[in-house]
Design a protein around this nucleic acid. Structure first.
Length: 106
DNA sequence: AAGGTGACTGTCA
DNA sequence: CTGACAGCCACCT
């Protein structure tokens, strides 16, 4: 597994409860600011294997942008359970619930 | 091994 | 505000 992959996994696991991070943000912290799509792809493939809090990752627009409608619902529900406000249109206020981190300390 | 793909993103109209 | 476009790049087939 590439360093990018392992780093990304660590970072995702480091997302605090009640907070959300964006794909681009994670990619950036992992050292590949231009690979948010890989982050997304990874969640899909490794979220279960590595027990990742995939539900805490959303798009930079602050909306849940997962393809699978069912998982989308689940994600919104999980977030609400952590205290994150998710609107009926799956919007999250990044100003308030965004994960603030300047750089990731591995 | 070569090519396709996506849970993205910033920019422009 | 919405929508279209084009980079982007690791992973899968």
């Amino acid at each position: 597994m590439s360093e990018f992959t392992s780093k990304t996994i660590k970072i995702i696991k480091a997302i605090p409860e009640g907070r959300v991070a964006t794909y681009g943000q994670i990619a950036g912290l992992a050292g590949h600011p231009r690979a948010p799509r890989q982050v997304a792809g990874m969640l899909k493939r490794y979220s279960e294997k590595y027990n990742l809090p995939w539900h805490r990752v959303i798009s930079s627009k602050g909306i849940v942008s997962i393809k699978d409608p069912l998982a989308k619902l689940e994600q919104a529900e999980r977030l609400r359970e952590e205290g994150v406000e998710v609107s009926t249109s799956f919007e999250v206020d990044l100003k308030r619930f965004g994960w603030k981190v300047d750089r990731f300390d591995a």
